[in-house]
């Protein structure tokens, strides 16, 4: 009983799957196609993060596609005081992902841009605003997709070593992603998670802030690294590649033997 095709539970599951919630999390029965939005920084600088994300999703049985017209979410312009230019790029995103049911993003910051700020940009453009509103619930930050849609914590990964997790600001404070990545890490075989204090303090990246106020931004990165060093972890994990680029850049400048990894890379490891 329960899994027969056509019964009430099966019907519910079918309906729920199309709007983003499975009545039966983790079920292998219904897997909707997911569209990757890898973000411009992963595309150009950290493609291994996108590859890892693809591997994890496919291992879980999700058919994955990659809308080839994708570029950027528009955040660099938006955060620099150019909402109009950001809007041009945002509109391109909305068109590119118009038909996607699940849009999975390896960045809480880019996901937040789409979910929270597109509606600000298009506040006075009714039609585009509706498009933005309709796409928001279909945008999933990678770790949240795993926990809430795929319904998994243990993806069968293994990792040898001590890691510490950096809460990237937009993931934490705009997307409220805090426990998910930690739960996923805690299920990775051989991995020890050691929290830094404080894990929630900004790394200092902040987009163009990092080049408009380089000394302040660099100082913030060095403070972050001090917190990391105290954990004696060999690896820093986060769900945002841009923070990791900042942290790794400062680590390399200080010639420290620490590496940064996106959560997807850890979860793809076997």
């Amino acid at each position: 009983m329960g899994e027969e095709k056509g019964n009430v539970k099966w019907q519910m599951n079918q309906k729920c799957a199309t709007i983003g919630f499975h009545a039966n999390p983790g079920s292998k029965a219904v897997k909707t196609r997911v569209s990757l939005f890898v973000t411009c920084i992963v595309d150009q600088v950290f493609p291994q993060v996108g590859i890892a994300m693809t591997q994890v999703l496919e291992r879980l049985g999700y058919p994955v596609d990659f809308p080839a017209a994708q570029t950027c979410c528009g955040q660099p312009a938006f955060n620099s005081g150019y909402p109009e230019e950001a809007g041009i790029v945002a509109r391109h995103f909305l068109n590119t992902f118009r038909d996607s049911e699940y849009i999975v993003v390896p960045s809480g910051s880019c996901a937040s841009m789409i979910v929270h700020h597109y509606t600000d940009i298009f506040a006075n453009e009714q039609k585009t605003l509706e498009q933005a509103r309709s796409i928001a619930p279909r945008v999933w930050e990678f770790s949240r997709f795993l926990i809430e849609v795929a319904g998994v914590e243990d993806v069968g990964a293994s990792f040898d070593g001590v890691v510490t997790y950096h809460d990237s600001c937009h993931s934490l404070r705009e997307m409220h992603i805090k426990e998910g990545p930690r739960r996923l890490l805690s299920k990775v075989q051989g991995l020890t998670l050691r929290e830094m204090e404080p894990a929630e303090e900004c790394c200092g990246f902040g987009g163009t802030f990092s080049v408009k106020f380089p000394e302040v931004s660099g100082g913030m990165a060095r403070t972050k690294i001090e917190s990391i060093l105290k954990t004696e972890a060999g690896t820093v994990v986060s769900v945002d590649s841009s923070c990791l680029m900042q942290i790794q850049g400062a680590i390399d400048r200080a010639r420290l033997p620490i590496r940064t990894m996106h959560l997807a890379e850890v979860l793809a490891g076997r």
């Binding site: 080839a68 990165a221 400062a250």
Partner: peptide
């Protein structure tokens, strides 16, 4: 901007193959 970045941290290397190309 690149110089400003480099004043504080190492510049990341662009990947040899982008995700677009990999896909």
């Amino acid at each position: 901007p690149l110089g400003k970045w480099a004043s504080q941290r190492e510049v990341p290397k662009l990947a040899k193959t982008s995700f677009h190309q990999w896909w």
